[in-house]
Nucleic acid binder design. Structure first.
Length: 595
RNA sequence: GGGGGCGUAGUUCAGUUGGUUAGAACGUCGCCCUGUCACGGCGAAGGUCGCGGGUUCGAGUCCCGUCGCUCCCGCCA
């Protein structure tokens, strides 16, 4: 008999009745009847009920074992009588009559319970993550994560991709998020950086002649956390393809993603390939977001014309100053009480808007509401037709400068959808967002900057850069969005040094700047680089969607908390002076807080 | 850096208009119980009400400050 187990805790069935078996695992629950004791022993694979009565030699050992004690129990597999079968457990038709028991590891009194549905603060869960991870939901989430990654690997291999690892200690990148830095012992005063993404390396692999590369790549960014953004580090399905157009990239990765979501989506419908493509401009207009949740059926419309020169002075004056009006329909809301509209108005104020104008279309399209009387029948008709509403619907308005109005109308769209319960949650709805602008004007400095990845190829290439207003140039830059979550950004890259110099020149960088910052990659492109492009869907976010978890930390084994601290390992931590000396580092700390 | 929410037993929470000894559940410990599977019954221990200050005859409760956790904004090429 094996030292620890002949079966896992999920394996035994009535077929095994009469056999001697040995199982090892954690004490999940105990039911103590005085002279009869039930112990549920748990491992990754399941739970098995073990039983002993007070005449048994092992009774004392089992009786003394606290929950989460690790036991090895040997005994006879016995079928349960009809009245004692437990249909909730796969092993519920048998039990193990304990003949021998060994404590493999004693458990102290627990700070949090593993069995049961009790909810615990995240602080508690992360401090005792090893206990938290024993719980059923977390086991499921992480097993799902493992299976998703395995499936992605298989699908990528089948699509002809090869997997490589790229450096973790690399150079700081001047664009993008803050880097995590690692001091060099050998080179005083110099630092490595952890990669924000293997961006340049994957482009160099293309230049090295590999046709299709992928990697489940760790990425490090020193940015503040969000529910869908773990601080510090996360994983991407990083991939890149040579000699491809944007369509080739879409056609290659769409079946991978659709396949993974169909495989693990538990029957929830998934957008069929090809995924719809929405231009960035359209997304901002119709959804008020560059990551629209297509499960939300509402569409935003521009109704500036209906308010231009109208008697509703507030909007009319703003329009003269360049503002636009965006409208969000609220189907079948005309019967909502006045308080419903007032509540939404308050909500708008809390979210930084002046308020939320609305018109209610009653029976026969009779318009009601505070601003309805200021709008002529023609204007009201224009609004109803543009927005696509009829009797019984209402329409909400956001009036501001275009960018602000677009963003706020997106918030309103989400809010109205929530209020009216219009979101179809049991779906995965994908889309590509395409035609991102290449450049944008920095609101504070007035400078023209890259709006996304500086390595993206401008649409129209060199000609566009030399002849077009930079702010009108689009890039071969795209995002993939699922249920309002941005899964990844990608692009057809700029593999031409001449076009790169020009693009950077427009963003205010000299040739020397570009060489200093991106010398490695730029140099490589001077020796023959294939046209290439790719993307990098976020693994954690994919698993989060599939697990139906609202928080990305639910699908990460050992995440840091919002303050970027690992409560279990106690990181970050101070270092002894000799270690700092070795790294040529002196501390200049902020003054201590007054107490 | 800014805003919202939360902070009471080991844990999750309740705690009325400011008023006697701050409660419940789970967990822990003890006793009883031979068919439970969220076993049950009886009992016990367990509290700096995050911390500091203030108002008051009296503060878990009101005020000010501060710390911690979390969600959001900024940030995230």
């Amino acid at each position: 008999m094996h030292r620890y187990r002949t079966h896992t805790c999920g394996a035994l069935r009535p077929d095994h009745a009469g056999q001697d078996a040995r199982i090892s695992g954690w004490v999940h629950r105990k039911r103590d009847h005085g002279h009869l004791l039930f112990v549920d022993l748990r491992d990754q694979h399941g739970v098995t009920q073990c039983v002993a009565d007070s005449s048994s030699a092992v009774f004392k050992i089992l009786d003394a074992a606290r929950p989460e004690t690790v036991l090895c129990i040997t005994g006879k597999v016995v079928p349960r009588s009809a009245e004692t079968v437990n249909d909730k457990l796969p092993t519920g038709r048998i039990e193990l009559v304990a003949k021998d028991a060994e404590v493999l590891s004693e458990a102290a009194v627990l700070p949090m319970q593993v069995a049961g549905e009790q909810e615990y603060s995240e602080e508690m869960r992360l401090t005792y993550r090893f206990l938290d991870l024993r719980r059923e939901k977390m086991q499921q989430n992480l097993l799902l994560r493992s299976a998703v990654i395995a499936s992605i690997r298989r699908r990528m291999w089948e699509a002809g991709f090869v997997e490589f690892q790229t450096p973790i200690l690399t150079a700081s990148s001047p664009e993008g998020a803050r880097d995590f830095l690692v001091p060099s012992r050998i080179h005083p005063g110099k630092f490595y950086a952890l990669p924000q993404a293997p961006q340049q390396f994957k482009q160099l692999l293309m230049t090295s002649g590999f046709d299709r590369y992928f990697q489940i790549a760790p990425c490090f960014r020193d940015e503040d956390s969000r529910a869908d953004r773990s601080p510090g580090e996360f994983y991407q399905l990083d991939f890149e393809m040579a000699f491809v157009t944007q369509d080739d990239v879409f056609n290659t990765i769409t079946p991978v993603l659709a396949g993974v979501f169909e495989e693990f989506g538990k029957g929830r419908p998934v957008t069929k390939a090809p995924f719809p493509r929405i231009t960035y401009a359209d997304a901002m207009l119709k959804y008020g977001s560059d990551k629209p949740d297509l499960r939300n059926p509402l569409l935003v419309s521009d109704v500036t014309k209906a308010f231009e020169g109208s008697d509703f002075n507030l909007f009319a004056k703003n329009i003269q100053k360049g503002a636009v009006v965006r409208a969000v329909p609220a189907p079948k809301s005309a019967e909502q009480p006045r308080s419903w509209f007032d509540k939404l108005n308050d909500w708008a104020r809390e979210n930084g808007a002046g308020g939320l104008g609305y018109v209610i279309f009653g029976e026969g399209m009779a318009a009601k509401g505070p601003i309805a009387s200021k709008l002529s029948p023609e204007r009201l008709k224009m609004i109803a037709e543009t927005v696509g509403v009829g009797p019984g619907d209402s329409v909400f308005f956001a009036c501001d400068q275009e960018e602000v109005a677009a963003k706020f109308s997106g918030l309103v769209r989400t809010k109205i959808c929530d209020e009216l319960g219009l979101l179809d949650k049991e779906k995965f709805m994908f889309c590509w967002i395409v035609d991102f602008p290449m450049f944008e004007r920095n609101k504070d400095t007035g400078q023209i900057e890259f709006s996304h990845n500086p390595f993206s190829m401008p649409q129209g290439g060199m000609e566009a850069l030399t002849t077009q207003d930079p702010l009108t140039i689009k890039a071969f830059q795209y995002d993939i969005v699922c249920n309002g979550v941005e899964l990844s950004s990608g692009a057809i890259r700029n593999h031409r040094p001449d076009i790169m110099y020009k693009a950077f020149e427009i963003a205010g960088y000299t040739q020397a700047d570009v060489e200093a910052r991106f010398g490695g990659m730029l140099n490589a492109f001077k020796f023959g680089a294939p046209p290439h492009g790719g993307s990098a869907p976020g693994i954690d976010r994919i698993v989060m969607l599939l697990a139906d978890e609202p928080n990305i930390r639910e699908v990460i084994c050992f995440p840091m908390n919002q303050q970027a601290m690992d409560l279990m390992m106690d990181a970050p931590a101070e270092l002894p002076p000799e270690k700092l000396r070795e790294l040529h580092i002196g501390l200049r700390l902020p003054p201590p807080r007054k107490d």
